[in-house]
Structures are given as C-alpha cells and as structure tokens.
Design a protein around this nucleic acid. Structure first.
Length: 552
RNA sequence: GGCCCCGUCGUCUAGCCUGGCCCAGGACACCAGGUUUUCAUCCUGGUAACGCGGGUUCGAAUCCCGCCGGGGUCACCA
C-alpha cells in the first residue's frame, strides 16, 4: 500500500479559522495514524489578498495547537522538504503550472478566452434575467489556432474545456455524488495576471506532492467535479476525497471571520458616539466599514473598539481562542469531536469523548466522520478547558498561566511573582474556566485598600448581624493577626481554627467578616490563601479599614 | 432560482449500513438535592430527541417514496 499523504492548504488572508484548524487536525491525525505524511502548502495565488504576515500567523497558530507538518515551510520546528516536492508557496511554483498549462493547450483542452470582466458580468446578468445559471462554454465557431495567435499580443485568461460528460465523485464521507455536465462550466484556470486559479493549482500541486487524500470543508464539494475532470484530462490519478461537514455558529449561521466585525459594528451603532479616531482608521475607512458588511477592520483595531465598547468579540480564529485563554489541548479535543467521534466506550459504558492527540491519531478515520454540520458550542469547549485546568499540577498550571500572560496580560506578571502564583494556583484552578479568567477570583489582590466598597448585603449579613456580631468578632480577632507565624495558608488556617475553638464560635462566623474586610464581599477563595497572598500588612490594613469605616 | 449536501434531547453525538437487545445511551448545558468557613470544586438524582406523511414488515430511529425544513455553491477568491 502506498503511504497516505494528506495536505492542508490555507490561503494566507488572515488568521487560521477554527474550521481550518479542524481540517488541519484531521489531516495531521490521519497522516500520523497511518504512518503517512502531512503536507502544508500555502495557497497564495491571490496576489491582492495574500500576505506574508498572515502565512506566518497561520503557521504559528498550527504549531501552537500542536499540529505539526512534515513537508512544508520550515517554521516552528516543523516542515522541511525531505521529499523534494517543494516549494510550498504556490506563488513560487509558476514554472510548474506553466508546464501543465502547455500540456492542456496541446491537447486542446485549455483555450484562451478574451472576454472582459465587464462582458462576463453582462452575460451573467442576461442569464439571471432568464432565471438560468450562467454557464460559460467555448463558442461553437472557436478557432483554436487563431486564438493562440491572438493570445500572444492580447490579454486573456485560459479556460479549461469541460468534457461533455457527467462526473462522479466518490467521497469518503458523503459517498457517491454525481454532477451532470450541464452544471459544469469551462472554468478559468489561468488568470489575466498569469497566476493559476485555485482550481488548477490544487490539482497540479496535489499531484506533484503525491497527495493521496484530499480533505477539506464541504463548501468545496461543488468544486470537486471540476478538479476530477481536469485530473482526467491531465492523466493524473485521482486521490480520495473527504469533505468535512461545516461548523456553524449557535444560531445556525456559518462561522465567519466577519462575525467579529458584525458584533463590533452593531455595538458601534448602538453606542452612537464612536468616531474613526476611536477606531484608529481614517474617516473614509470607518465609513466604508460601517456601511459595507464585507469590509473588515484590522484585528487590533477591532479589539480596541471592543474593549472600549465593552463587548466580547466572538471567537472565530484560533488566535481568538488563544487570547481567551483556552488551552490548545482543550481546543484540539473539542474540535476533533465536531463531526467525528471515536465510537468507543469506556469501562463504565460511557462514550469516550475526552482524549489526547495520540488517541486521536490512533483512532481517526474518515468512516466515522459525520455528514451533518455542527454548531460550535462554547459552553462545552469551556467545560473541556475547565476540566483540563483543574487536572493540571500547580506547577504546570502556573507555567501555562504565565506563558499566556506574557502574550496578553503582562501587567499581571508585574504584580504577581511565580511563587505567589504557585500558592494561588489550587484556588484559581478551581475557579477559572480559562486562563484569561484566572485573574477574576483573585481580583481582590489588585484593589486599593482605601477604595474597597463594601457590599451592602454582605455587611448586613456578616458584619452587623449576630450575637456577637461579625464586627465584634473581627475586632477581637484583629490583635491575633500580628502573631500569625508563619503567615502562610496553613499557618493562617491554623490560627483561625484555634481562635474559633477557644472562643467557642463556628469558623464561618469569623470567616465571613474577614472576607468582607478583604474583598468587600462575602466571596473569596479559602481564607488561608486569600490572606497569605495579600500579606500581613495589607490584611491588617484592610481589617482596620473595615473596623473604622463600619463601626458605628 | 439551478445543482449538490444534510435532518436523533437546547447543543455535540451513540444507535442507522447488517430492522427486534432502543417506550432510544452518553457528554455539555439546565433543574433539584448533598458535602463544604463563602464562592467554587466535588457527589447523587432529574427534565429533555428519532422533522412530517405514506409505504415495506409480525416488528422501523434503522429499508423505500413523497413532503417540509436547514445548509453549501453558482468569481479572472480560495
């Protein structure tokens, strides 16, 4: 049997979309599990929209997820050209495409077409008027020789002459799908600028790179017969195809990069007082963005606006999830389950759905990929992430936390040293679903003692009420604080316990007023870590403040 | 609109190919209890689905047909 070779071929027009990540993951998992190879190719034939930075970003996103490629651009410790089938940027493969263009022209299966975009627009409009789909065909009196001659001096595109027969696609996921000839047009394979179109480049590159399994989103299904027809024309052996079901938003719409703009646009409109200065772009750009749903603002500007408007951007790209503080392992596990499942049960008879990469690699196959599009359920992703966070050792957690902070919250690193974070870790891990939310349960650490606002209900219940009242208990405990040694979670807990025992009160009676003093509310992590993290001086200051502020 | 794909709890799904083990199982969410110095974690339990209509069959979530619904695609983008 030949070595299976899969490939992921993103176009570098932005960050890696979560759907693309799943495609890449399945490709990589299949290659690993079958001892094959996984190729990464950058499809940058669209000169206008592609960028070097986007390509680098995608490689970075993949590597962060732990999806490494065997053949492809060398970056992040992945890639290389061991099989000598590169380069892996389509823009650098022009000479290869030219060879194939020539072959098709010789065969009379590719021909120059001179219609201008305007003319084509007219033709489409006319077809639409008749309620028909516009299908481009070579005109009946087309003269190949003179067209070729004319092509030497005139701008033109190259079209593929679609053979007059239906095409059957055998899909690993969907099964047999038949496309009638009447639906297949003479597609453009070389653009006016000389670059191949996507359709042509994939066919050539997949063949040149020995790809055996073409795995991609279902939105490509309708393209497949064109590709198959070209393969046949070129005498290329056809690979197997696997079209993955789409991923939707919870509301059923397709998960799109533009959703982020959509969210911010709506918030801007609702706020009513946002200007181009807030957006950080020119007035013209801002107006265009507001009016045109297809116009996107740069990521950084979008984040800035979202912060200003206090709206949460929907996570769409891998980078968005990373920023939100999800662990790559959680994302990988969750997206693997979108459209696929191992179909195995654990010893208790429950379906297995929590697993790691080695398990995925071993089990993944296309026969268990579903056909139905799935909605992206953030709550479930959060549950996966939370479980992973809870299961981490404190050291690993702090490592992950600090790494995240280096990228997204350097301020936290300035406030907390590693040792303090380590002490806080167990408390935080029980309370933070994502890394970005890790600072929430310890928010009291960042408050200024003199500006703590005391929650009315908490004060009424825990400070004023009781006999003796919480305030009185706190007052009598206050002198003890200075003598707590060591001032560590254990030392503090011990001191608290012995004080309560000798005073013959329940721990809760004292604990709650202390919480109010420390945080202004009745909620905090266990008192030991809460006080230890604050430090003796701050603890005393906060107790004093409550006593002086609320003792009436 | 043409063509193509899809349709099991709110969501992700198991089961469908090889009809009975399914008055449909799991997970997330939700609800109710319990443990706990608060919150959280944790534990226990519960609500909840085969889109509709015809067939075939002793028997259908599973096979067939129709309908309805959702989605994709119709570029010199990928």
């Amino acid at each position: 049997m030949t070595t299976p070779i899969t490939r992921f071929a993103p176009s570098p027009t932005g960050h890696l979309h979560i759907g693309g990540a799943r495609t890449a993951l399945f490709c990589a998992a299949y290659a690993r599990g079958q001892s094959g190879r996984f190729v990464l190719r950058i499809e940058d034939t669209d000169q206008k929209r592609s960028s070097e930075a986007a390509a680098a970003g995608i490689l970075d996103d993949l590597a962060w997820l732990g999806i490494c490629w065997d053949d492809g651009p060398e970056a992040q410790g992945c890639g290389g050209d061991d099989r000598n089938v590169g380069p892996y940027y389509q823009s650098k493969r022009r000479d290869i495409y030219d060879r194939y263009f020539d072959r098709l022209i010789q065969l009379g299966l590719a021909y120059p077409a001179f219609d201008t975009p305007e003319e084509l627009g007219e033709m489409r409009k006319a077809a639409e008027k008749e309620k028909k789909t516009f299908i481009y065909r070579q005109c009946a009196d087309y003269d190949h020789a003179s067209a070729l001659e004319r092509a030497n001096s005139e701008e033109h595109v190259l079209r593929f002459k679609m053979p007059a027969e239906a095409v059957t696609v055998d899909d690993e996921v969907l099964g047999k799908v038949v496309f009638p000839y009447e639906e297949l047009d003479d597609l453009v394979i070389r653009k006016r600028d000389g670059f191949p179109t996507y359709h042509f480049a994939v066919v050539v590159d997949d063949h040149e790179m020995g790809v055996t399994h073409v795995v991609r989103g279902q939105e490509h299904l309708n393209n497949t017969p064109r590709h198959v027809a070209m393969m046949k024309a070129l005498g290329i052996e056809r690979p197997s195809f696997a079209h993955l079901p789409l991923i939707f938003n919870p509301d059923g719409s397709k998960m799109s990069k533009r959703d982020k703009d959509k969210t911010v646009r709506a918030a801007v409109k609702a706020a009513g007082n946002i200007s181009e200065t807030d957006a950080g772009v020119t007035a013209g750009e801002f107006a265009r963005w507001q009016k045109d749903k297809t116009v996107q603002l740069p990521q950084q500007n979008l984040i800035g606006l979202a912060d200003k408007l206090d709206v949460v951007l929907p996570e769409i790209d891998v980078e968005d999830f990373r920023r939100s503080g999800y662990l790559p392992e959680a994302i990988v596990n969750y997206i693997a389950l979108l459209g696929w499942n191992p179909g195995e049960r654990d010893s208790e008879g429950n379906e297995i759905e929590r697993f790691d990469r080695p398990y995925l690699n071993e089990k993944f196959a296309f026969d268990r990929v579903g056909k139905k599009a799935s909605k992206f359920d953030r709550e479930k992703l959060r549950a996966f992430n939370f479980d992973l966070i809870k299961a981490m050792g404190p050291g690993d957690f702090v490592d992950a936390w600090r790494t995240w902070c280096e990228r997204y919250d350097t301020g936290l690193l300035e406030t907390l040293d590693r040792e303090t974070m380590l002490m806080l870790a167990p408390a935080v891990q029980q309370r933070a679903v994502t890394l970005s939310e890790a600072r929430v349960p310890i928010g009291f650490l960042f408050a200024d003692t003199d500006s703590i606002e005391y929650d009315e209900k908490a004060v009424a219940k825990h400070v004023n009420k009781g006999e003796p009242s919480g305030l009185e208990l706190l007052k009598s405990f206050a002198p003890e604080i200075a003598g707590i040694d060591p001032f560590t979670p254990d030392g503090i807990e011990a001191s608290l316990a012995s004080f309560c025992e000798s005073s013959n009160i329940k721990l809760g009676k004292l604990a709650q007023p202390i919480r109010v003093a420390m945080t202004g509310s009745a909620v905090s992590p266990p008192l030991g870590v809460t006080l230890a993290a604050l430090g003796k001086d701050t603890v005393q200051a906060r107790v004093t403040r409550l006593l002086t502020t609320l003792d009436t």
